[in-house]
Computed example of a mutant assay.
Amino acid sequence: MYVPAHFAADDAAVHELLANHGAADLITATPQGLLATLLPFVYDPQAGEHGALLGHLARNNEQWRQPVLGEAMVIVRGPDAYVTPSWYASKAEHGRVVPTWNYVTAHVYGRLVVHDDPAWLDALVRRLTDRHEAASPQPWSVDDAPPAFIAGQLRAIVGVEVVISRIEAKLKLSQNRPAADIDGVIAGLEARGDAASAEAVRLARR
């Protein structure tokens, strides 16, 4: 990943992204070529030296069956947004401005481990469910469904774990712009209703 120094992410920002992202793309190079699946992951910082990402695939998905050539990669994304130069104060000053795209992303590399164990899968789906149901006024629980039904669902999936070896992360959030331009970007994003991207820019300027 191309990461200019002013867009580099520190360890705290990387941890925040991995701990709070939604779904991410699992990409593997295989004898059949590149394969990719979008799926939710749980970040386990205690697994291995650099942590691990835990998720699951449909059993019918061929990706988990294929030998992985080298490392697997997971592309994790945070907020992203189009930035119009109309938001920049410098547009009125000299006009030498162009559109851009702000984004937060990490390329997570590691060894892919397949888990075909019902107990491991049960623990994983409970972690995923608890995390994403936490904000609901009436959170759904795995135990709300009949046990036989859940057992059948678990048989239809296979667990995957990416044991992290390295991470390349980038926070492109207008850090290269003058302060007045950054203020304009925050105001523009908020007016557009993109509070998440506006807050990311606000945090990146500190």
Rank of each mutant, 00 (worst) to 15 (best):
V3N: 03
V3S: 08
V3L: 01
P4G: 13
A8T: 14
D11M: 02
L17E: 11
N20R: 13
G22E: 02
G22T: 05
P31E: 14
P31L: 08
G33C: 04
A36M: 09
A36P: 01
V42M: 05
P45G: 07
E49L: 03
A52N: 10
A52M: 14
L53S: 07
G55L: 01
R59K: 06
N61T: 03
E62A: 15
L69W: 08
L69I: 15
L69M: 10
E71M: 01
E71T: 14
M73A: 12
V74H: 03
V76H: 04
V76D: 00
R77C: 10
R77L: 11
D80M: 04
P85W: 02
S86P: 03
W87C: 14
W87P: 12
A89Y: 01
H94T: 01
G95N: 09
V97Q: 03
V97Y: 04
T100H: 03
V104F: 02
V108I: 10
V108G: 00
V108Q: 12
L112T: 05
L112Y: 02
D117R: 09
A119N: 09
L121G: 00
D122G: 10
R126F: 05
R126S: 10
R127E: 05
T129A: 11
T129P: 02
T129M: 11
A134P: 09
A134Q: 13
P139C: 08
W140A: 04
A145W: 04
A145E: 09
P146K: 08
F149N: 12
I150G: 01
I150Y: 09
A151P: 05
R155N: 15
G159H: 04
V160K: 02
V160C: 06
E161Q: 13
V163G: 07
V163W: 01
S165R: 12
R166F: 07
R166C: 06
E168P: 04
A169N: 11
K170L: 08
K172E: 02
Q175P: 08
Q175I: 08
I182P: 04
I182D: 07
G184E: 06
G188E: 10
L189H: 12
E190D: 14
E190R: 15
R192N: 12
G193W: 01
G193D: 00
A196C: 07
S197L: 12
L203F: 00
R206D: 13
